[in-house]
Computed example of a mutant assay.
Amino acid sequence: MAEGDSSGEALHGRPSLPSRVFTRTGQVYQTWLDRLTPHTPLRWLLTTLLAAGYLARVYWLQGWYIVTYALGIYHLNLFIAFLSPKVDPSFGDDSDDGMALPTRQNEEFRPFIRRLPEFKFWYSATKAVVIAMLCTCFDAFNVPVFWPILVMYFLLLFCITMKRQIKHMIKYRYIPLTTGKRRYKGKEDTGKVFAS
C-alpha cells in the first residue's frame, strides 16, 4: 500500500477528511451552544425573531399552513412537557428516589424539576422553527388546506390541553416556577475589624 493512500490512513487510525470536517463542525456548533447557554433572554429573543420571520414568510407566500399547524402542535407538546414535573405525582409511585413534589407545608423544600428542561425546550423549539422554515422552500409541503379550520382546531386543542394541565397543577399543588429556597439574613457586616 502506498504511503499517501487515504484509505490506508483511515485503516491505521487517522480519520478521513469528511470525518474530520464533520467532527470539527460539530465542535464549533457545540461551542456556540455552550456560549449561548447562560444567556436565556437572548436565546429566546433570537428564537422569537426567527419564529416571527417564519410567520412573515408564511403570510407573504400565502401557503404552508399545514407546516405551520404541525409547528404549533409540536411547540404545544414542548410547552406542556416544560410545565410538567419530571415525576408525575398522579402515578403515586414510591420509587421516585426522593424526586416527588412536597405535599405538606412542613416538608423539606424541593425545587420543581421539569420533565423538559428550559435549555432543551429552547433548543427543540428553535430547531423546529428552522426545519419549518426549510420546509417552506419546497412546494411539496405546501398542501392546500382551509386554514381557518386549522386555526380553530389548534385553539380548541390548546384550551383543552391547558385546562387539563392547570387542573393537574391545582390537584397536586405545584407551580412550575422555581423561586428558590428561602434565604435568611444573618448579621449585617459592619466592616469593623476588632483587634485582640
Results as ranks from 00 to 15, higher is better:
36 L>K: 13
36 L>A: 15
37 T>V: 15
37 T>P: 05
38 P>C: 06
39 H>L: 11
39 H>T: 13
40 T>A: 13
40 T>S: 10
41 P>E: 08
41 P>V: 15
42 L>A: 04
43 R>V: 15
43 R>D: 01
44 W>N: 11
45 L>N: 01
46 L>V: 14
48 T>H: 07
48 T>E: 01
49 L>Q: 09
49 L>M: 12
50 L>W: 01
50 L>G: 04
50 L>D: 11
50 L>N: 14
52 A>Q: 04
54 Y>D: 02
54 Y>I: 12
54 Y>E: 00
56 A>V: 08
57 R>N: 12
57 R>V: 13
58 V>L: 06
58 V>C: 14
58 V>I: 15
59 Y>A: 11
60 W>Q: 09
61 L>K: 15
62 Q>H: 10
62 Q>L: 03
63 G>L: 11
64 W>R: 11
64 W>A: 12
64 W>G: 13
65 Y>F: 00
65 Y>P: 04
66 I>N: 00
66 I>L: 14
66 I>D: 07
67 V>P: 06
68 T>I: 05
68 T>A: 06
72 G>V: 07
75 H>I: 08
75 H>Q: 07
76 L>K: 02
79 F>Q: 10
80 I>K: 02
81 A>D: 00
81 A>S: 07
81 A>T: 03
82 F>E: 01
83 L>H: 04
84 S>V: 03
85 P>Y: 11
87 V>H: 07
87 V>I: 10
89 P>V: 01
91 F>P: 00
91 F>V: 10
93 D>L: 10
95 S>P: 00
98 G>W: 00
101 L>E: 05
103 T>E: 10
103 T>Q: 08
103 T>F: 02
105 Q>C: 09
105 Q>N: 11
106 N>S: 12
108 E>S: 15
109 F>H: 08
110 R>G: 04
110 R>S: 08
111 P>W: 05
113 I>W: 01
113 I>H: 04
114 R>M: 07
115 R>L: 11
117 P>W: 00
117 P>R: 02
117 P>F: 02
118 E>L: 15
118 E>S: 12
119 F>G: 05
119 F>S: 06
120 K>V: 14
120 K>L: 15
121 F>E: 06
124 S>F: 14
125 A>V: 03
126 T>K: 05
127 K>F: 09
127 K>I: 09
127 K>Q: 09
127 K>L: 02
127 K>D: 00
128 A>H: 09
128 A>Q: 01
128 A>L: 09
128 A>P: 03
129 V>R: 00
132 A>W: 09
132 A>L: 05
133 M>D: 11
134 L>Y: 02
135 C>F: 13
135 C>D: 01
136 T>C: 12
137 C>V: 05
138 F>W: 09
140 A>K: 08
141 F>M: 00
141 F>Q: 00
141 F>N: 01
143 V>A: 03
143 V>C: 06
144 P>A: 03
144 P>M: 07
145 V>E: 05
145 V>M: 14
147 W>V: 09
147 W>F: 13
147 W>S: 04
148 P>L: 10
148 P>C: 06
148 P>D: 03
150 L>H: 06
150 L>S: 09
150 L>M: 06
154 F>T: 13
154 F>R: 07
155 L>G: 04
